[in-house]
Design a protein around this nucleic acid. Sequence first.
DNA 1: CTGGTAATGTGGTCATTACCAGTAGTGTAG
DNA 2: CTACACTACTGGTAATGACCACATTACCAG
Lengths: 246, 246
Amino acid sequence: MSSTINPNDMLPRYFQLVTILRAKIEAGEWQPHAAIPSERQLEVLYSVSRTTVRQAVGLLIRQGLVYQLHGKGTYVSPRKLQKGLVELTSFSEDMLQRGLQPGQRILELAEVEAPEQVRQHLELSPDIRTVIRLERVRTGDGQPIGLQTSYLNLPAGATLTREQLEERGSLYAILQEKYNINLAAADETLEVTVATPREALLLEVPAGNPLLLSERILWTNERRAIEFVKILYRGDRYRYTVRLTR
Amino acid sequence: MSSTINPNDMLPRYFQLVTILRAKIEAGEWQPHAAIPSERQLEVLYSVSRTTVRQAVGLLIRQGLVYQLHGKGTYVSPRKLQKGLVELTSFSEDMLQRGLQPGQRILELAEVEAPEQVRQHLELSPDIRTVIRLERVRTGDGQPIGLQTSYLNLPAGATLTREQLEERGSLYAILQEKYNINLAAADETLEVTVATPREALLLEVPAGNPLLLSERILWTNERRAIEFVKILYRGDRYRYTVRLTR
DNA sequence: CTGGTAATGTGGTCATTACCAGTAGTGTAG
DNA sequence: CTACACTACTGGTAATGACCACATTACCAG
């Protein structure tokens, strides 16, 4: 990894600068709460304009690696804040981050008439009558973690097969590669519930055990609601984390 | 509300522009998924530079009101994404957003030896031995919603009295006004638990009922951990919502 | 010793100019 | 008719230069 900016590189300069600065922070070259070089110093150090410096630093701020104090300087965040949380992730990515091997057991994959609740969440127009329903038991290191039910409003003509799912594992990877659909945002609500007999059986817990119910609406880069997904998590095996900012 | 930029105004121009554009969107002048004027058009329309336009639009994007597609244009987000979620809020603000009147019953306010768990979360240095412990039953429209336990690491010399709390209601408002402490970020974890007899009594639910346990670490604008707070929410009266982005 | 002030360094805002990189429509050569 | 180049838009990146707002320090007058 180079530590200078290469103007001919395919990557934008501000992005190269982000990479360089992040590396220095993660290597401990600049300690938490220590000041990093000022914007005008970075200008000279890396032969870029202040515009570029500010764009790079702005990104680092949004990622939680540094913070700025007006009139004082730019400082390295404490380690706990350097870890990127929040990120919109798939179940698979989520498990991998937690150091567990993601797995799944597909219970159903079918085109069904859209329930009213789903119609509303996905803002379906009246001419769209059906959605794809996908029900899976999700596992981490082979142990059941959650019961996931997805309702997908795929673009016309798009299909989804059991084989694709079993091969790639991640639904979002398929959407991205085959249909060029990128996820941009999600709204999620969490609440507490208790296991019905069927849920208890699938999750391998006693009926009546407390569960964490997550309901999520997923939006594409064009801000179309594409998926409504419920996940029932085992209360004893799952913990949800977020970072809030102001 | 003016619809032009006033250079002599105390507020920065990009901020004035944000206000104008947001007003038009919320008034329905530009419908969801419709294109708003291009950056170069906004330049002319409001007599500001493209720098300023982009700074304003960037803010609107982060607030979820609009989205951009490279080579195409800038578009208004669907209504569901326009509503600002996520925001780091106090319990009081949270209740008000939900349309409930926040209230509290203080159970304890005392300086105590910091438990080990708290020491770690707040990253206390060895010379700091005590923190302030504040335990409250929080209510919405008079009904118990949550049992909140805060551990505060106030700056040297700062104090906190029952009277202040009862008067202002919001702890964060006191920190802001009296000690110029602003909250910048929070890390939160959520999990499921069941009510102990004491918790059940205070929350007015049967013992063994499922509860939502939130643990939160709060960071100031200088990225010092100032508070560790647990809230046990009644599972039947509380639902947590977040917006995730990529 | 105290309180004001000027100097200097920090991030924050803004205008101007230029060119790159995608998108979409149009026209033309094959 | 199709394939391809052209063109005219969009947002994305970048340099330069200027001034404002805030924080800190040093210095000086009282």
